[in-house]
Design a protein around this nucleic acid. Sequence first.
DNA 1: GTCAACCTTAACGTGCACGGCAAGGTTTGA
DNA 2: TCAAACCTTGCCGTGCACGTTAAGGTTGAC
Lengths: 164, 164
Amino acid sequence: MASGELDPGDRSPRLLKIAEVADELGLTTRAVRYYEELGLLKPAARSEGSYRLFDDDDLERLRFIRGLRDDAGFSLAEIGRMLEDEEARERNRARFRTTTDLEERRTILRDALIRVDRQHVSLLGKADRIAAMISEVESRRDHLQRHLADLEAGRTPRHADPGS
Amino acid sequence: MASGELDPGDRSPRLLKIAEVADELGLTTRAVRYYEELGLLKPAARSEGSYRLFDDDDLERLRFIRGLRDDAGFSLAEIGRMLEDEEARERNRARFRTTTDLEERRTILRDALIRVDRQHVSLLGKADRIAAMISEVESRRDHLQRHLADLEAGRTPRHADPGS
DNA sequence: GTCAACCTTAACGTGCACGGCAAGGTTTGA
DNA sequence: TCAAACCTTGCCGTGCACGTTAAGGTTGAC
C-alpha cells in the first residue's frame, strides 16, 4: 500500500479539526472549546502546532452533550456529573478487563448499573413530566375537536365553549 | 351564614399576595415579578396600595409556566410565544360566547385547534428526543444486567465487558 | 396610632453559556 | 516560499433569568 490514505481495513484514524467538528454537529468552535474548559471533553490529540484534533469518540461525546443540553434541557453542570459517571464507567471497563476475580467483577458491574440507573431515572423523570403536560394539551385538543365535529355536523353542542 | 368564610357555594374569590403565591408554587417573588415584566402574566388585581393580587387562574398560569420551564426546558421567550397563543385562545373564547354565527364559531374553533396543535407538536418533539436518549441508556442497562446475571449464576459470560 | 411584616419600584449584581475580539502561531495549497 | 485560511490562548462583552439591595409605601394586629 503506497501511502495508506484509503486502506479499507482502516480503523478510521481520521482526526478532525475544531471547525469541522463544530460544522458537523451544528455547534460553534467557541462552544466546543468551552465544553473542554468545563472538563466535559478532552480532544483525542493535538497537532504539532497544538491544534485540537477530534476522533469519532469525541464526536459521540459531543453529540451526547448536545442531546442532553437541547433535548433534555440539562445544564452543563448536570451534564458534567453524568459524564463523570460515564468516565467512572470507562475506568471500570478497563479494570474489569484486567481482573479475573469474580467478586470484583460483580462489584464493578453493580457499580456501573447504579450509575446507568441514575441517568435512567433522571431522564424518566423528565419524560414523565413532559408526558403529563402532553396529556393536558391533548385533552384540550380533544375537547376542541368534539366541539368542532358537533358544529360541522350541524348539531348544537351541549355547551358552547372553545376553551377549558 | 355568619361571616361567609366557608360558604360551600363560594366561587373562591380568595386573592393571594405575591409571597403566598411564590410559596405555594416554589418560586421566588422576584421570579413572579419578572414573569410579569416579560408579559407572561398579569395579576388579576391590585390592592388599594397597589399590592399584586393573584387568583386561581393566575396560579394555573404560573404552574404552566413553571412546567414549561423546568420540565420541558423551554426558554421564557418560547413560553411567551406559547402563552400568546393561549391569550388568543382566551380572546376567542370571549368572542365565541358573544356570537351565534355558526361559521364564525367554526373559524374560532379551528383557530384554537391550530394553536393547541402547535403546543402539542412542540412537546411531542421534546418527548421523542428524550425517549431516544432513554432507550439508549436502557440498552446499556440491559447489557449490564445480563452480564451481572451471568456472573451471579456462576456462568462465564460470552464476552466480558461492562460497557456498551 | 404604631410597629413589624409585608409590599412597591428602581437599580445594580450574578452565574451560566457562550460571542467576539486581539495578537499571534500553524497549515496548506499555489 | 509565501499568503490565505485556519488555529491558539486570553480576555472582555452579552443575553437570559433571575438575586440583592435600597428607599420607601401599605397592611394588619395590637
